[in-house]
Design a protein around this nucleic acid. Structure first.
Lengths: 363, 363
DNA sequence: GTCGTCCAGTTATACGTAAAACGAGAGGGG
DNA sequence: CCCCTCTCGTTTTACGTATAACTGGACGAC
């Protein structure tokens, strides 16, 4: 046997190159054809291959450390068993948890999940496929701009949206934010708060519209009033800015002595904004929660990192991700998927307390 | 022309199926062969195809919305122009920024970048390829457990490590943490601090060993002493726990009146730990920075979300990612890459102040 | 006129897998 | 004895791309 020679065609069973072993190599080692290898390793061999041959194939594959070439498989099958998860940002660890939930379900179904953090945050979304570099079977997307969404739809890929309007996609998984707001307002009412301000995200997204509408309705239903509102970018800095604006208008040196009065509680669209609001209150010399209460939404790690810890609405991030992935799998399976609406729960911590202005309304 | 018929072989130029157009479709539309399409679109047509034909091909491709099948290309070429970025966790937005930097460079070189958050944090790493579902050209990894690293090396893939020991990989990109610690200690010395405690991460990783060693050396060089140390998980809760341990030993009800005395400053291995230390101090009734100073490392968003804001060492996260990707590209290009060591900068904020115990050492 | 030599393409092939179509031998029934 | 079925495989093909190998003219040079 000479030392080196070019890989001869039909040289079944010997492998010279440094590349990964292929199905043909396994076939050679096991003394069968590549087709048999594919059948056995694909699990569809029952009644077509004898048990001992199947075992020999598996042994050879194990021996050589064979792993099928994904590109070849994809080319052949036209599917990849891979999904893309598009998230607006990773500075909010809510989405990191969503990913974990989705990845777990994906793994259990032998699916891959590629995480795509939309670079421009929530607004723009350049071609995710350029980044993913994979043919995809479907997409799970969170809070996407309409333009990016239509681009995605143009690909003809199954699409599951998280926290988004129903329609225009194959399935939705939402959290019951209206109920979350309801719990927040009820909690504040029980604490005696009647004048409430809204620190909102300046993002034109369905999920934030829901929060605003629910807040309005719940305040009305509880006999409370909205005294001030401001919008800011979805970040701590944005919350700081918006809350400063609201609080200086109410408590600042030139406070307009409005008929409505000053807010005793700030309801914020998410935890980042709420933490910004905490900072704003502190900078203005307002004590939290003695003088002003603050609430958030999400219950991210940040919520318990600050002092006082944040009263917030805990969203089941992991379940959202898991449900999103399951919905996508169902869609790929041709099933009809009805919209999911996951429950949320208020977590009361140190950032809310009794209203300074009035006594408790209950006896 | 009958309504429907099976796709006839050799039916050049007409496309019935709902699938994406292929190179053959473009060829049919442009009146050339698939090979010519590949040549033109691949950019290697100069001197082989006339300009007007090339233009016709490009027009047809544009018209049909042709996009090459990645799987087929990968299968043919054996490379994917895709890299994997392995990060320990996404709760720390440092890595989100690293990803952004790497993704930008990747995009500029027509490379894809898939983000893989190691589920078990820093310790274990199940097969990333199962998740990525792509053949990969290389890997950029951050703070990996040795076992996961060897598994990765076993794939024979080019590997660039971030903040890791040199050797055992093809290139490293580090930040100059020793210098960061030097700046921290110098700052504390200037503030009169002589007794310092170390809040460390209980992670056996090169990058944290560097911090511990550097702190030891710098304290010695500046005539300060280490009075207490504790390790905790890399999180706010971990920092809270470790710092509580250190501070109660020094200031608590049963404080051992050690010869060394109590620490006036806590140097923490990262910002999460530092925020936990802030909480611990506050809970024990110690004011920051009046009674105890706290420093972190990373300068994540969290650092400015808390009150007081954190004095910390800013790491050039985006540059780390960019340098990592560039290093990988160079390795793939067969070049020798020398280890990079990026500069860091101390950012002084509200969590550090003059030592309460002694006057300033300088005139 | 014959022979290179370009030009402007085409034809053919390989990548590794999945699966449809196709045997070959054994055994059984009529 | 022939045909049918059943078992256990093999041969072949297609997926879409990149590129090596080839071709058929046109054009000069000798």
């Amino acid at each position: 046997m000479p030392g080196r020679h070019a890989p001869a065609a039909g040289d079944h069973g010997t492998r010279q190159g440094r590349g990964r072993p292929t199905g043909h190599d396994v076939a050679g080692a096991a003394g069968v054809s590549q087709a048999t290898v594919s059948l056995v390793l694909g699990g569809k061999w029952e009644g077509r291959v004898s048990t001992r041959t199947a075992e020999a194939v598996r042994a050879a594959a194990r021996e050589l450390g064979y792993r099928p070439n994904l590109a070849a498989r994809t080319l052949r099958l036209g599917r990849t068993r891979t999904a893309l998860l598009v998230v607006p940002a990773l500075t909010n660890d809510f989405f990191a948890t969503v990913h974990r939930g989705a990845a777990e379900v994906a793994g259990a179904h032998d699916f891959g999940l590629v995480l795509y953090p939309s670079p421009e945050g929530i607004d723009a979304a350049p071609d995710p496929f350029a980044s993913a570099r994979t043919a995809l079977d479907g997409v799970i997307a969170s809070s996407m701009a309409p333009e990016a969404l239509t681009a995605l739809r143009g690909e003809g890929l199954p699409l599951v949206m998280l926290d988004s309007d129903e329609g225009a996609c194959d399935a939705t998984v939402n959290v019951d934010l209206a109920d979350g707001i309801r719990q927040v307002v009820a909690h504040l009412r029980d604490m005696g708060h009647r004048r409430i301000a809204h620190i909102a995200a300046d993002v034109d997204s369905w999920t934030f519209e829901v929060r605003a509408r629910a807040l309005e309705e719940e305040l009305h239903a509880n006999g409370a009033t909205l005294v001030g509102a401001a919008r800011g970018p979805l970040s701590v800095a944005g919350g700081l800015e918006a809350a400063t604006q609201v609080l200086t208008a109410a408590y600042g040196p030139h406070a307009a002595d409005t008929a409505e009065g000053s807010p005793t509680a700030l309801v914020c669209d998410d935890d980042l904004l709420a933490v910004g609001a905490l900072k704003a209150a502190r900078r203005l010399g307002l004590r939290v929660p003695e003088e002003v209460s603050v609430t958030g939404i999400d219950d991210v790690a940040l919520a318990t990192a600050v002092e006082p810890e944040l009263t917030t609405v805990r969203l089941p991030a992991e379940r959202v991700g898991a449900a999103g992935m399951r919905a996508l799998l169902a869609v790929l399976d041709g099933q009809q998927v009805e919209p999911a609406r996951l429950p949320v729960q208020l977590v009361v911590r140190g950032s809310t307390g009794p209203s300074p202005s009035g006594g408790l309304p209950r006896p």
